[in-house]
Design a protein around this nucleic acid. Structure first.
Lengths: 337, 337
DNA sequence: TTCGGATGTACATACGTGTAATTATTTGTT
DNA sequence: AACAAATAATTACACGTATGTACATCCGAA
């Protein structure tokens, strides 16, 4: 039995089994000829000592440590938790452990990621600077980008997964348009200025492009942005609904925002969806339980997870990664006609 | 400039600065006398090469790698995401990185945690076997337990944080009782059998104890358990509400369950809170946006995070860890009288 | 001068592993 | 029986770092 805090090493196993350390190593990695007899003795010793190879040392030898890091912006958002679970599900079968970490836009953070031994990184972050992402890529770390915005300046061995955000939002706009809405408003957390400069955010871009295609003229009235908490957004929506400028549909960045918008609209005495439609994004648990149940756009998280792992495997094998294009699914409930 | 995939090492820095590797090490760890001149040259070389110490190698030398692992059961639950964010907030200032990983009740998982270099582990899991937790403890890994149930058989250098779950549930029961409810039902995911055997789950225990203290007789009618998805629970609640056995209050394991219960109760045509009260747990984002807004019990996540880091610091310093007892806060909204 | 201490540098080793190169042993073939 | 080939086990080194120990220099005090 290993004493407290005194993890047994390969040497202990070798001594107990009466073989050299190398034999132990070969048995465990199953890559050289080892006699059946010694193999058995080694395995028994391993069992008896509860020995297991130290993955730090193993990683130092460049063997990887079967760890995938999932970096996200807004860790508190349920969306990432659910995605983590999916990732974990498909990764565990392949021998990987996945963990979720909050992104920090900070050189030290990048350094620590790089100097840690992770086999791959999955990034879903609007805030992480492209130069930092580039740095990860340049250091030969397999990187999978969950595309919520352009990473125009990032080049090299990067994999990209388009989850269908842009076309999903476009479909939502068309749906509302076809159901008779003529005055749509896009609701986002981020301030409009940041988006307008370049249409980097895919949802924003999808909204704008589809609106323009349908012949609408976009103006400041087409957006509510920059609200960071419940009350702020609630008030902003109320002001907008009560103002002279007509509104009959809200297209929201995610279900969390949509829920607040919905409450505000109802509080203003408007009927949903008769007078005003609301559509969210994510198909969060909340979207299902609120009343009226929220219409929303669902990404296929299982497919995202599988795509991510497929891309990672390819990159680890040294292949040049491709892009994956997935599709969203409209979940029509009670806030749209 | 480092070539792609070719991270510079200490030796590169030493060569460029014209000093020995040891000097570089001393400069970076600031623990020996180094002449101002060489120190300057080293720092310049570090800057120029974008060198940074490999934390794998560093960890191998037993220096730790400033990484805290947060292990949770139900990673998709928003509660853990929010807690991760808080943990991350307080930990980052102290130089730690925190990541969240889904618990697996599996020997291999424990082995991999142990052989990875994490400085500490925070566990919030009902499913992880106590023997595995014990194993982590026995290997001198600082472990903080977020107590949602007893860990009766776990001994040694473990820290425990009581987030106030038990007293929180008790307060909820009293609240409903005092507001006139006489037929309370406890709603949980886990099946009753698992709980009944020993009152290990703190919420379950809190509910039972307080009910008994108030003089109620508990029976099978006092519980709805074992429902794992929306529809299942919805139906179970409807059946219960429409049955002959009276109900006038639901005390739920968490807000997610409470939301479903609430919808079912309303769907049965009952008035909330006039005829039936519902109270949740967690103060999740959802609890705020659903209508009627859900009364719930909030744990102080910031305090939990701070307590966890305090305990970890103490354990790393070699002190014997204590226990922290925190309190919950009742958030009375519109589903209770 | 001689010694002690403070300051600065370098060497050598260790952490626990993987594996190429090497040597020892067995097997197979003629 | 002899020798090549296949198999088995060992030796030796490397990964990138931290640090005990040893060595070197310089200054001031005895």
């Amino acid at each position: 039995m290993p004493r407290k805090g005194n993890t047994p090493t390969r040497k202990d196993v070798a001594d107990l089994a009466g073989v050299s350390e190398t034999i132990v190593s070969y048995v465990l990695n199953a890559n050289r000829y080892v006699s059946a007899d010694k193999k058995k003795r080694v395995l028994e010793a391993v069992e008896k000592l509860h020995y297991r190879p130290n993955s730090i040392a193993r990683a130092l030898k460049g063997k990887g440590n079967s760890h995938i890091l999932f970096i996200a912006d807004n860790v508190a958002n349920n969306y990432f938790g659910r995605l983590l679970q999916e990732l974990d599900g498909v990764a565990y079968n392949k021998g990987y452990l996945v963990s979720l970490m909050s992104a920090k836009n900070d050189r030290d953070f990048i350094n620590r990621i790089l100097s840690r031994q992770v086999d791959a990184v999955i990034i879903s972050s609007a805030s992480l600077a492209e130069s930092y992402v580039q740095e990860l890529v340049d250091n030969a770390l397999p990187v999978v980008l969950l595309m919520t915005r352009d990473y125009a300046t990032v080049h090299g061995r990067v994999a990209r997964i388009y989850t269908g955000i842009e076309s999903g939002i476009m479909a939502a706009v068309r749906l509302l348009h076809e159901s008779g809405c003529r005055n749509l408003v896009h609701v986002d957390r981020v301030s409009r200025q940041e988006h307008f400069s370049s249409r980097q955010d895919l949802r924003f871009r999808g909204f704008c492009n589809q609106m323009e295609t349908l012949g609408y003229q976009l103006s400041a009235d087409s957006f509510i942005t920059g609200c960071h908490d419940y009350d702020e957004l609630f008030e902003a929506v109320c002001r907008r609904v009560r103002s002279d400028v007509p509104v009959d549909g809200f297209v929201c960045r995610n279900d969390d925002l949509a829920s607040i918008v919905l409450n505000a609209v109802l509080a203003c005495g408007k009927k949903v969806p008769e007078e005003i439609s609301v559509i969210g994004f994510d198909n969060s648990d909340t979207s299902r339980v609120i009343r009226p149940a929220l219409s929303t756009i669902a990404t296929d998280q299982k497919a995202i997870a599988e795509a991510a792992l497929e891309l990672i495997d390819a990159m680890i094998k040294g292949q040049t990664p491709g892009e994956k294009h997935l599709v969203t699914r409209m979940v029509i409930r009670d806030t749209t006609r």
